[in-house]
Design a protein around this nucleic acid. Structure first.
Lengths: 204, 204
DNA sequence: GTCTATATGGCGATAGAC
DNA sequence: GTCTATCGCCATATAGAC
């Protein structure tokens, strides 16, 4: 089921825009740089997408989809909670490892236009009710410590995302700017975040 | 020991620049908007600070100081580790509650210019060695679970900062965009983050 | 569809009067 | 020190030839 990407102009633009926007953000990106990256000229960008804003929005929605991955099947599975969390953290941090610019990009842009953000969330049918309910059931069953399930959700996301979003700073302050060491650290988060969370919520 | 701020032009500029930069970031800020906010004209900005970049840098350094607060006295105190952590989390989240734009601002800008970031950190004498060593001692003494102290530091920062940095998104997804409810949630983090961390690291 | 050339507007920065 | 006016540039966007 490999995705077939045609090498036409529109796709070349989308790939180039993705690459530049995600690194520089909306404000920091120049249409000229997207054109150069795509190997075409500026005018074509407007021919296909009319405005920079529209091009940006089509990229943002696609990127956003990746950080709210479809996990319905995982939620509904009958794995014990510690394994569900383990699988989720594993997959989630893997996404971030493969797309290290996403966290900063998203955090930068969610403040720019709240209405647009709301429309993206709505159109993607994002609804955390299922996850919240699952956590609540586990708490009611006495499998994990009682707390506001939303706290757990925010903690889970924060522990996963923050080391990527704050990478330049954390790398500099705690790892003497050693890129490889910090990447090992990030890779290892799949294990340590799981430990940290399970140690906190599992009743012993 | 109240700080006396003179109502001269330079301070008016600094205050206005702080307000605009922290909300819009370097790329998103217009000199005109700073001038309007300060109640003066653009030319004066350049008279006092020559370039936008220089004005930005003087603001960034000052803001940055707030997120790496001086905690030497806390570290050296002979409080038990759970109280040290409690005091730190309390103070840190209080700073963020009073300056809710700081997390997004910092995360936005640390990617823009790594050399400038390094110079700020160096000039402010930021060095996490003391904290790392303190954690290490507590682990060696068997007071908290053994782990890489840097993991604990990053977790501490992530749990504190992320809910502020991702506010528009978390508020929308988990709190039906209810501003007051989300602010209560943030306020309450002083308690829940402490619980979450201590439950994870204290040996039971 | 793709290009070159250009319009249009906005922004950082400066000149120069007061 | 503070202002108005303006320069020079660069970015988005469009016109129009091919």
């Amino acid at each position: 089921m490999k995705e077939i990407k045609k090498d036409n102009t529109e796709n070349k633009i989308l790939e180039a825009a993705h690459q530049v926007f995600i690194e520089k953000g909306m404000d920091g990106t120049r249409m000229q740089e997207i054109a150069n990256t795509a190997g075409i000229n500026k005018a074509l960008l407007h021919y296909y997408f009319r405005t920079k804003q529209k091009l940006f929005e089509s990229i943002f929605a696609k990127v956003f989809e990746q950080v709210f991955p479809k996990i319905e099947s995982l939620i509904k599975s009958d794995l014990p909670i510690e394994e569900k969390l383990g699988v989720f953290i594993d997959k989630y941090i893997d996404i971030l490892l493969k797309n290290p610019f996403i966290p900063t990009f998203i955090l930068k842009e969610i403040n720019r236009d709240p209405e647009f953000l709301a429309s993206v969330i709505k159109s993607q049918g994002i609804n955390p009710r299922q996850i919240i309910e699952m956590f609540q059931k586990e708490m009611d069953a006495g499998n994990i410590r009682k707390m506001d399930p939303r706290e757990l959700m925010v903690n889970l996301l924060g522990l996963s995302i923050f080391p990527f979003a704050a990478k330049p700073l954390m790398k500099l302050v705690f790892f003497e700017n050693d890129k490889k060491a910090y990447n090992r650290f990030l890779e290892n988060r799949k294990i340590t975040v799981k430990e940290f969370i399970l140690n906190s919520i599992l009743l012993k």
